[in-house]
Design a protein around this nucleic acid. Structure first.
Lengths: 257, 257
DNA sequence: TCAAAAGTGTTCCTTCTACACCCATGT
DNA sequence: ACATGGGTGTAGAAGGAACACTTTTGA
């Protein structure tokens, strides 16, 4: 619940994102998406920064239209920020504390951006809508970071990949949401065979191993890892990849099906 | 989303359950609880039947008050149906299809109970409130079946334990909800050490084994099972239980902490 | 003394782990 | 030739499955 902000940048007019109270959304229900990517032995999260004074970061979120499946809503939110349609997506937790609302965040935002304080009837209505208690459904997404061109929407000052261990302080409970997403990711990583969503189309065994080492934050034995992965029978071996390095060329692999 | 029905029994007045539209609930958000119990080598689910003509069964459900954590709401719903305060509870899935609503169920209910069709303003309001699309958070609970005295509330004709394989046809998507709950239960059964929530205070190793065999629907080797469970180091051995049977008396165990 | 079920120990086999060796490649 | 990193094989350790044996109890 962040991206569809209350008080839109006045210079930009994107009716779809403004006035959420009039968009026929389900009341007090939001979706927050933790988008994981992987690059250079680091697990990253795609986080937009709000286009207001003060440093407001939060994971992409949004609301659910009356005639929209919650999974579709999550996909829509993901697509607007990543440009990608087919995304691996997993519902992982519902955040539903009674005290969970945007009030603190909104107050600080307005304090630092007093020019937004034109409280006419319309603004007031949106403010009331947004500062209610929200129940948020948490999703995590796994993407090939090379395929994503992060999309800045009107309320974004920036949108960037952050190492999951080096995230800035996020609004509301978004740091907790990322934590829980990471736990859920780890828990189903092996069992569900989802690692390959984070890798490009083709990759070497070393790539896979480094990914696993990153996710579980521990070194793995090279030979045993190769055996374990190949025994899963989900990879097809392609041609060798000539790296130009002074050593044997590794095989490339592709995820089957 | 079932127990707090639209059209309350006119002979009974329980203001807390009637007129949900006026209870300051979160709109279009419900909670459904699958309550698992275990008895006689069978996994059972506690299911109330509605006190209306036509056979309407559905798992206990309810709504979330504005100033109530969703976990607290689930506990409240469970307590009203089981009488037990401390219950093992796990959030397992959100059911959020756009087409998910009570319309079909309500229409059939009204067709079979035409006397309820007094559509004055108040009834109409409740009907509108209840037949909206609902997003439902699924919880499953594990209880010691001996401690539960099923509580019939005003809209219940009965409330009984059903074998999970022999459930009647339930309203809306409640059969699917039970299915998903069972999958989630199986998935975290070993890892989370939750089996003992389904057993009484003290039990024999055979009890535990039969429970596992029931949950996973396959026979297990007695000796290896005993070793595995004892190696978890979560049970304390108590005195022997003299059954009067013509064989060695088994030990009783209790779950530590 | 015997049948029945509980408790325990032992062997076998599969799986995981660690170590070792060989192969391809560029300098 | 040799250093570097990739691919594979094998021995040992650990964990799980199958089998056997002993113990306790009431008839």
């Amino acid at each position: 619940m962040l991206t569809e902000s209350p008080i839109p940048d006045k210079n930009v007019s994107t009716p779809i994102l403004t006035n959420p109270s009039e968009q026929n959304y389900i009341d007090q229900l939001s979706i927050d998406c933790v988008i994981f990517g992987y690059h250079n032995k680091a697990l990253k999260v795609l986080v937009p920064k709000l286009n207001f004074k003060g440093d407001f970061w939060g994971v992409p979120g949004g609301f659910v239209h009356q005639h929209e499946d919650i999974d579709d809503a999550a996909h829509r939110i993901l697509q607007t920020r990543t440009g990608i349609k087919e995304i691996y997506l997993e519902q992982f937790h519902v955040f539903g504390n009674a005290a969970r609302n945007n009030l603190k965040f909104m107050k600080r935002l307005l304090k630092l951006n007093p020019e937004l304080l034109i409280m006419d009837e319309e603004h007031k209505k949106e403010y009331m809508w947004l500062t209610k208690r929200f129940v948020s459904i948490g999703y995590y997404a796994l993407v090939d970071i090379n395929k994503v061109i992060p999309q800045k929407i009107d309320i974004d000052e920036s949108i960037d990949w952050y190492n999951v261990q080096e995230l800035p302080e996020l609004i509301i409970d978004h740091n907790e949401i990322v934590e829980k997403a990471l736990s859920a990711l780890r828990a189903s990583f092996d069992e569900k065979l989802i690692a390959f969503n984070l890798l490009p189309e083709t990759f070497t065994m070393k790539d896979v191993q480094e990914l696993y080492e990153t996710i579980f934050d521990k070194p793995l034995a090279r030979n045993n890892f190769q055996k374990k992965i190949l025994d899963m029978n989900v990879l097809e071996r392609l041609e060798k990849k000539f790296t130009g390095a002074a050593n044997k060329a590794p095989y490339l692999y592709r995820f089957k099906r």
